[in-house]
C-alpha cells in the first residue's frame, strides 16, 4: 500500500524524506517513526549539525547546518541506518481532552454539515465527540494542529465560501480532519463549536498546547461552562496541564 520512500532535495539546508502524497494515518506514523529514529541517530553522534525536524502529513523535513554536514551525508546515514520495524513513536506524546461548546453561535455550521452528511445535528456532534484524534502536524499558524481522522461520515470538502474571519478557538472540520483555530483568521472549514482554552500562549514554557503526535479527545460543555472557562482564559489562569487526559485507574 505504501509507496517507496523518496529523498527530495530542499537546497543545502534540508533533506525531505517523503512517504506518500496523501492524508493517511499510516504515512503520519511512518513520518513520526523516522523522526524518532533521526533523534536517536543524532544522540548517537551520527547526524552532527542536525537542527530540527518538521513532520508533515507526507514527509519529514530534516533541517541541518550546511556548515557542519551535507544533505548527501544525511541521506547516506539514513540509508546505512534504516528505521527498525519496532521503532517506538509514542514515548513522549500527551493525551489532551478539549472542552467544546457545540452548535448555536459557537458552531454555526452544525446544521449545514448535518444537511450535507444526511445526519441529525446531534449525530454530527456525537460523531465528532466519539473519535480519539491524533495530531498529524502543526502548521499554517503557530499552534494550529491538524487532527485526524474524523468519522468517515463527516468527511466534507472545504466550504465553497471561506469566511473572512473565524474566531480563535473555533473547532472545525474539513476533509478527514478537524482542528481548533488558535487565532482569529480567515478560514474555509466547517465550524462545529468553540473551545475556550488557549491553543497558543507566548508566556507558557512551551508556546503551543499541542505537539505533533499528541492525541486529542473532545468533550461537550454548555454555554455557562464555556463562559466560565473563557473568563479564566482572559484572566490567564488556565493551566494546560489540567487538561491532560490521565488514564483512568
Amino acid at each position: 500500500m505504501q509507496s517507496p520512500v523518496r529523498y527530495l532535495n530542499a537546497g543545502d539546508t534540508a533533506l525531505i524524506v517523503e512517504f506518500g502524497n496523501d492524508i493517511d494515518k499510516a504515512l503520519v506514523d511512518a513520518v513520526n517513526a523516522l523522526r524518532e529514529h533521526v533523534k536517536q541517530l543524532h544522540k548517537q553522534g551520527h547526524l552532527p549539525g542536525l537542527q530540527e525536524t518538521i513532520p508533515t502529513f507526507r514527509s519529514l523535513a530534516i533541517v541541518i547546518d550546511p556548515l557542519v554536514i551535507s544533505v548527501d551525508e544525511v541521506k547516506a546515514t539514513l540509508q546505512n541506518h534504516p528505521v527498525s520495524a519496532q521503532q517506538n513513536t509514542s514515548t513522549s506524546s500527551n493525551a489532551w481532552r478539549l472542552p467544546v461548546c457545540y452548535g448555536s453561535d459557537f458552531g454555526p455550521d452544525v446544521e449545514s454539515v448535518a444537511k450535507a452528511t444526511h445526519l441529525s445535528t446531534d449525530e454530527v456532534i456525537a460523531s465528532h465527540l466519539r473519535q480519539t484524534y491524533q495530531v498529524y502536524l502543526l502548521g499554517f499558524q503557530p499552534g494550529y494542529g491538524f487532527l485526524g481522522d474524523t468519522d468517515p461520515r463527516l468527511h466534507l470538502p472545504r466550504r465553497t465560501e471561506p469566511r473572512i474571519r473565524v474566531p480563535a478557538g473555533s473547532v472545525a472540520i474539513a476533509m478527514k480532519l478537524t482542528c481548533v483555530y488558535p487565532w482569529d483568521c480567515p478560514g474555509g472549514w466547517h465550524l462545529l463549536g468553540r473551545c475556550p482554552l488557549p491553543m497558543f500562549n507566548a508566556q507558557a514554557d512551551r508556546p503551543t498546547m499541542l505537539s505533533p503526535n499528541d492525541t486529542v479527545t473532545f468533550e461537550s460543555i454548555d454555554a455557562n461552562a464555556f463562559n466560565a472557562l473563557e473568563k479564566d482564559r482572559i484572566n490567564g489562569v488556565i493551566q494546560w496541564s489540567s487538561w491532560l487526559n490521565h488514564s483512568s485507574p
Binding site: 530542499a10 539546508t13 525531505i16 514527509s59 523535513a61 533541517v63
Partner: peptide, 11 residues
C-alpha cells in the same frame, strides 16, 4: 496543489 509539506526560508 499538494498535500501540505514543509516550507523553509529559501523555498
Amino acid at each position: 496543489d499538494i498535500v501540505s509539506d514543509a516550507i523553509l526560508p529559501g523555498s
